[in-house]
Simulated assay, not measured.
Amino acid sequence: MHHARILGTGSYLPARRVTNEELAQRIDTSDEWITARTGIKARHLAAGHEKTSDLAAEAARRALSDAGIAAEQVDLIIVATATPDMQFPSTATIVQQKLGISGCPAFDVQAVCAGFMYALTTAQAYIKSGMAQTALVIGAEIFSRIVDWNDRSTCVLFGDGAGAVVLGRGEEAGIVHSKLHADGRYLDLLKVPAQMADGAVCGTPFLQMDGQGVFKFAVKQLAAVAEEVLAEAGVSAADVDWIVPHQANRRIIEATAKHLGLGMDKVILTVADHANTSAASIPLALDAGIKDGRIRRGQTLLLEGIGGGFAWGAVLLRY
């Protein structure tokens, strides 16, 4: 059986960094209010000319360079995004064109903040089955364009960015086990209900969220899926070197770590600098932990994320 392992990682954040203090000059909020409730201190926002594919392509180039892999060696591209460049074609095919790759499968996965978990698990299945040898998996978002900047309850939470990993075939398991879930009964907790019809936007084009409902659901399900993956893999929480969670809210992350009996010194935390970048948040945090030397080869990582749908999942891997 073939196994999928991470060969390289890369990330990209737009140049413009917006602090809580800057937001407080535009809306009724404060650094203290945002920090106390979320742990967020700043976020990066895409420039007017930047598209999701631009962020994704740059993160991909950095991941390929880190892996020492030429673009033409990639035989699968999956982009996890809820903010595609356009209705179609997929952002993945646009990234494919920007990287100078042709011929290989390229498609998007839409599971919002859980998108990277879904994309990573899908790429793993391709590699395990022998359908691909080298996969490029990207999480990329420009959420700043779907939030209402007059709504302080949501606009302060999100940022833009992209993260990427290169997966390759290996003799030993890199991705040890994964678990994905979804439950459409909770779709009203977090949604952007707009759609295109007759050349116009129908419905609300801005993100809508039940903050308390999302918080309660996320804490419960992230803890449950983490335990589920560990149990099925025959691994204890004590064997986990690092949790690399979706970076939505520090309090949710703290609750999940506490449930597993792990301290925050075992968590890669980037939410303060990046805010919630949806599908990009896990690969951004993963790349940050690798590049600063905390995450090292041979260590066991638990990745987990949850987002609108509701969709959620976890991946246990040995880096």
Rank of each mutant, 00 (worst) to 15 (best):
R62S: 02
H49N: 11
S53M: 03
H246K: 14
A56D: 13
M196F: 15
L222K: 07
T9A: 15
A162E: 10
A4D: 03
R294H: 10
G213R: 13
R5F: 03
L55K: 05
G203W: 07
I268L: 15
L13Q: 11
Q247R: 10
V165D: 11
I94G: 00
V18C: 05
A46Y: 08
V147G: 02
A288E: 05
A194D: 05
M1C: 03
T122G: 12
A24M: 11
V137M: 05
M264Q: 13
Q25H: 13
A162D: 11
N150Q: 11
F206K: 11
P105F: 01
V244I: 11
T122L: 14
F158C: 13
K191V: 08
T19H: 08
D239E: 15
G48H: 01
A123T: 12
A92M: 14
S102W: 00
E141I: 11
R43P: 10
L317S: 04
T93I: 13
A288V: 00
V112A: 15
T52N: 01
G261H: 06
T91R: 12
A162T: 10
K41Q: 14
H49F: 09
D292T: 12
Y186A: 12
Q133D: 13
G163P: 02
N276I: 07
A226I: 05
A132F: 08
G308W: 01
R26A: 13
Y12E: 14
A60D: 04
D287Q: 01
G163N: 01
L120C: 15
P283E: 00
A288M: 00
V166W: 13
A279S: 15
D108I: 09
Q110M: 14
L136E: 02
H2T: 12
S30P: 08
N150T: 10
G289W: 00
F116P: 12
D151W: 05
V244Q: 01
T256H: 04
L302H: 09
G298F: 04
E254N: 06
A194R: 09
A224D: 14
A182M: 08
G234C: 04
A272G: 14
Q195N: 00
A173L: 10
D183F: 10
I101Y: 01
L45V: 12
R17V: 11
A238T: 09
M209P: 01
H2N: 14
A114Y: 14
G115K: 11
D108M: 00
M86K: 09
A257H: 09
M264R: 13
W242M: 06
L301W: 07
Y12T: 13
L45Y: 13
V137I: 14
Q133V: 02
M117C: 15
K179G: 06
A67E: 07
A59C: 05
H49S: 12
Q212P: 06
K220L: 03
S65E: 13
L157F: 00
S144V: 10
H2Y: 03
A272D: 15
G293K: 08
A164L: 03
L13S: 11
F107G: 02
